[in-house]
Design a protein around this nucleic acid. Structure first.
Lengths: 226, 226
DNA sequence: TAGATATTCAAGTATTCTATTGAATATTAG
DNA sequence: CTAATATTCAATAGAATACTTGAATATCTA
C-alpha cells in the first residue's frame, strides 16, 4: 500500500466515523437521543418533548437513523423511533462526561437555571442501592407513564410529574422519597423534590437517570409488552 | 420555572454539548485526535501525518481546542497540541465502538484496504498480558520515535516502521514478535508484521493501540522529560 | 536588528446544514 | 372508496463550515 492509497484509506475511514460526529453535532438531535434513551417514542411525542415542529423532528430523526444511532419501526399510523443499542447510550454518556468536566459553560447554564442543586441532596445510584437494602425508601419515578412502562427501577412507583400534586395522598409521609427521572439534566425530579418538600415530605433527587442506572448493570423492570 | 424557561434552558444546554459533537463531525479532526492520543505533536507534524496543509490543520486544531478536546502549549517556535484528558480519548473510543458495531461501511473499508486482517493473528491486550507473563515475546513498537518517547508499553523495543527493514538485525529470530502501533486503524503494525514474516520471523499484531492499552489501566512507560 | 521559521489570521468561494412551508404518502376508520 | 391522521418529502432561504491563498504575528538565531 503506497502513501497515496494509505491516505485514501484513512480519509474514507475517518469520514465514516465523522458521520457519527455529524449526527451528534446538533443540540436538537442530542436532546432527541436523551429522550429516546428512555424508550421508544413516536415522532409526534418526540417533537412535543423537544419543542420542535413535526417536520423538523422527523428530519433530525432521519439524520440520526442514517448514522445508525437510532432505529425505527412502524406500527399502524405511528412511526416509533428508539436508540439503536447500548453503546449508543454509552457514547452520549462519554460526551456528557467530557462536557461536564471540561466545559465551564455547561456548569454555568445548570447553575443559572437550576440554581443550587446540592439543596436537592442528590443521591448517587450506588448509594441508592445501599440505602434500598436498608429499606425505608420510597422510589418515585416522575417520568411520563410510557417511559416508566418501557423500563424503570425495581419497586419504583410511577407518578408522572404532571399528576404529582393531585396524587400526593398516595405517598406515605413517614418514608423518605427518592425521585428519579430521565437523567442529570432532566428537571422533572427537581420539580418533584421541591413540590414534595413544600408538602412536608423528606425528598431527594436521584442523581442519574434510568438509562444511566441500566448502563451500570443494575436491574431494570419493564411492563410486559413494552 | 415555566415551560418557556425550561425550553430556553434545554436549548442552551444541548447547544453546548453539540459543540463537542461539532468538533467530532469532521474526519480530519478525528484523525487529529487519534494522532494526538499518542502524545503531543506540533502543528507541522500533525499536518504531515494527516496529509493536510499547515493552515488547514491549524484551523481544525483550533476548532478542537475551542470545544476543549485538546490543549496547547507553546515552546519556542513550536506550538504543541495534546489531548485534553483521558475522558476525551474515552469519547473517541465510544465513537469507534459504535461505528465498528453498527456501520457496515467501516468494516467494508477496512476489508478493502487492509484485506484479511485475521491473517495478522491479532492478539488482544488482555491476551498479551498473559503471554508476557509466560515470557518469550518481543514487544515491538513501530510508531515514530517521539510517540514512543511520550509513552509506550513496558519493555517494548522502539523501531519506527520506516527504519524497520534496515534494523532487522536487532531482532532475534527465535522470539515471537508482537508489533504495536497507534490503534486498530493504524497500518504501521500491519506493515511491520508482513515485513517481519517475509524475513522469517514469527510476528503478530497487537489489536489495540497504546492509548487503548492505557485506557485499560495497564502500565505505560514514558521517557523522562516527555 | 534582520532574517528565518512556525503558526495564526483574514478573506473569498464552494459546499453543507437548518428550519420552514406546503405537498405527497401511508395507514386506519368509517 | 373517502376522510382523517401521522409522517415524510421537496424546495427554499439563510447560516455555518471547509479549504485555499496570502498576509500578519511570534519566536529564535546570527
Amino acid at each position: 500500500m503506497d502513501k497515496q492509497e494509505k491516505r485514501t484509506f484513512k480519509d474514507a475511514l475517518y469520514e465514516q466515523f465523522a458521520r457519527i460526529g455529524k449526527a451528534l453535532s446538533n443540540g436538537h438531535r442530542l436532546e432527541l437521543l436523551e429522550v429516546l434513551a428512555q424508550g421508544e417514542h413516536s415522532v409526534e411525542t418526540l417533537a412535543q418533548e423537544t419543542g420542535m415542529s413535526i417536520a423538523n423532528a422527523s428530519q433530525h430523526l432521519q439524520v440520526l437513523r442514517s448514522a445508525r444511532l437510532v432505529e425505527a419501526r412502524r406500527e399502524g399510523i405511528y412511526q416509533y423511533y428508539r436508540l439503536a443499542d447500548e453503546p449508543v447510550f454509552a457514547l452520549w454518556q462519554a460526551m456528557r462526561r467530557v462536557g461536564e468536566s471540561r466545559m465551564a459553560e455547561i456548569d454555568r447554564i445548570v447553575q443559572t437555571y437550576l440554581h443550587d442543586r446540592s439543596l436537592l441532596q442528590p443521591i448517587s445510584a450506588t448509594e441508592l442501592v445501599q440505602r434500598l437494602i436498608e429499606g425505608n425508601i420510597l422510589l418515585l419515578d416522575v417520568r411520563p407513564a410510557a417511559e416508566y412502562a418501557a423500563g424503570h427501577l425495581p419497586d419504583a412507583l410511577s407518578i408522572p410529574i404532571a399528576e404529582l400534586e393531585t396524587r400526593l395522598v398516595e405517598l406515605p409521609q413517614e418514608r423518605e422519597i427518592v425521585a428519579c427521572c430521565r437523567g442529570p439534566y432532566c428537571v422533572f425530579a427537581d420539580e418533584a423534590v421541591s413540590l414534595l418538600r413544600t408538602h412536608g415530605y423528606h425528598a431527594r433527587r436521584l442523581e442519574q437517570g434510568l438509562p444511566d442506572w441500566r448502563a451500570l448493570g443494575l436491574p431494570v423492570v419493564s411492563e410486559k409488552g413494552a
